[in-house]
Simulated assay, not measured.
Amino acid sequence: MKLIIAVIQPHKLPDVKKALFDAQIYKMTVMNVLGCGQQKGYTETYRGEVEEVNLLKKVMLLIAVNEEFVEPTIEAIQKGARTGNIGDGKIFVLDLLDCIRIRTGERGREAIG
């Protein structure tokens, strides 16, 4: 079992969801987050004052999958999120020690589904 964490551009979320659904990956958690990387933010002027904005809006997806779905999930996220520009995001893959479905008490592979 693996936990896949993806941080992507907010406007790419519909494309990533479509690519995941096409790969038969339907279960995910999505959060709005702030972060910075190579983009390093930008500056804007508000009422004559220059402000530096270095935390940019991003979307984080958390997807728990069984081993056979790891590569299809990664490929789907890349397909949906890639623009070729700095700021496309990152994908992290972590070992998932256990998963418990609260409703039934199932554990492991069966709980992920």
Rank of each mutant, 00 (worst) to 15 (best):
K58L: 11
T104K: 02
Y26I: 13
G113M: 09
M60N: 08
F69D: 15
E49Q: 11
L3H: 01
A111R: 03
F21D: 11
K2S: 00
T45A: 05
C36H: 10
L56V: 10
Y46K: 15
V53N: 04
Q78F: 10
A76R: 07
A76W: 04
I77F: 06
L61A: 07
K27I: 08
K12F: 01
M1G: 13
K18N: 07
R47C: 07
T104G: 02
N54H: 10
C99K: 05
R101L: 11
E75G: 08
T43Y: 00
E110L: 14
G87L: 11
M31Y: 14
A19T: 06
K58I: 06
V53Y: 08
V93C: 01
E51K: 15
R109P: 15
G37D: 02
A64S: 12
I8F: 09
A111N: 07
G108E: 07
V50G: 07
G37C: 01
L94D: 01
L97Q: 10
T45R: 14
T29V: 07
G105T: 08
G89R: 08
I74F: 01
V70G: 02
I8Q: 11
L20I: 08
Q39K: 12
N66L: 13
E106S: 11
D15F: 13
R101G: 05
A6C: 07
I100M: 14
I102H: 03
R103L: 11
I112K: 07
C36Y: 15
T29M: 11
L56K: 03
M1A: 13
D15Y: 09
F69G: 03
E52H: 00
V16R: 03
C36V: 09
G89Q: 08
G80M: 04
Q9N: 01
L55W: 14
